[in-house]
Write a protein that binds this DNA or RNA. Structure first.
Lengths: 219, 219
DNA sequence: AATAAATGTTATAATTATATCAAAGAATGA
DNA sequence: TCATTCTTTGATATAATTATAACATTTATT
């Protein structure tokens, strides 16, 4: 879940932003002054900053310069084009002027977070989360490292949950990753996968369909 | 030098954009239709696309979907907020409405190209602080000097924490700094980096992903 | 219940990948 | 130029993965 820091001293605008973003399932952090924002930024791993420029004590420009490695969207009433340009060049990633459109705010937030998300290709099924970029499987939020073949197999199963994949079809699908794998070997990999899942979950998830193949299922 | 593709059928606007960007020392490519744009994108390594939506034959939306991995700034007369939101969500990185301010266009172009350049001189991840201007790494506030190659490698890892970078990708990324580095050599640099980090931290930070590459991680 | 066929488990050997070390070769700077 | 540091190379050690095969269990059929 992505962490977004909202830096805005005007309570009503702050709450409005919060309300809009809560619907999108982000973890929200609040700062009502520049110094509060700095404190949070030192402590937390923030994924995105929504930043008002005119703040009590420390002003927004300082935060932009210090934390330009974090995506920053300026939300400001400063509509002077020179302010806009200066802040963009100094490290802001986007600039929205008040009053803003709710949908556009959400869209621009998603755009800034997208690159981070997009890179990890993920598949989810109930309490299984597979990130096949780094071959990490989360079983009830417990991290398990999969081997190349295990990952390839589980990926195929998760791509069509509740649908049986025959053994020969599976071998064909994972052929690129492991050209030498045969039915005997597949059997072993499935067994190992089941063992890794069982360690952190009573649910089996992988079911064998007698005479045909395997499928992911919910019991 | 960064390559920017200008996709705009209106000659006068096309030339205006060109004129503005030429001052900034970019290499400019021109497309006056969607199909021409696609042709260029298949052939060239484009760093940024400036895209008008209403084009002869293929329309801009198709280009956004197909090439969303390249930064795209939409420049459009379509001012409907829904169009804007839809295109941003579909893969556009920014959206400028006509008529645009010249300075703002340049600023937004620079912002989109900035991440690629990495103008930021510092990167932070947990108790690692890398300043790659002077190739200094702070491990739990202990100063460690890195070599050029070590610094280049760690920089790439820190730029996308928790994401695996394959060995070949890494070699590609640090190619400018060390053109002779191969997989064997990379292995040694990683080993040396790990040793330098281990001196001041029990956390490993650099994790190798078997068969793929390396990543920065938090345990 | 017996049996045959399919699936499950385990151990091991072969293969493949990574880690570390030391030394040679390159690059750098006084 | 020499001395120093950095990078590559290759050798060796360590580790992880995979296929194989032997054996155990389950399932379907008679």
């Amino acid at each position: 879940m992505k962490k977004i820091l909202i830096v805005e001293d005007d309570i009503s605008i702050h709450n409005l932003i919060k309300e809009i973003l809560l619907k999108e399932q982000y973890e929200l952090l609040d700062a009502y002054s520049g110094s509060e924002a700095l404190m949070i930024l030192e402590r937390e791993n923030v994924d995105l900053i929504l930043l008002d420029l005119m703040l009590p004590n420390i002003n927004g420009e300082e935060i932009i310069k210090k934390f330009s490695q974090i995506p920053i969207i300026v939300i400001s009433a400063k509509i002077s084009i020179d302010d806009k340009i200066e802040n963009l060049l100094n490290g802001a990633d986007d600039y929205i002027t008040k009053p803003f459109n709710n949908g556009e705010l959400v869209a621009r937030v998603k755009v800034r977070l997208r690159n981070k998300d997009n890179c990890n290709h993920n598949l989810k099924f109930k309490e299984l989360k597979l990130s096949f970029e780094d071959r990490t499987l989360y079983v009830c939020n417990n991290k398990v490292i999969l081997t190349k073949t295990e990952c390839a197999i589980l990926k195929q199963l998760l791509l069509s949950p509740n649908k049986v994949i025959s053994k020969s079809k599976m071998l064909e699908l994972i052929n690129y990753d492991t050209p030498d794998c045969d039915e005997n070997s597949l059997k072993v990999h499935i067994s190992n996968l089941k063992k890794k899942i069982k360690k952190y979950s009573e649910k089996k998830y992988i079911e064998s369909v007698w005479g045909i193949g395997y499928k992911i299922f919910e019991d």
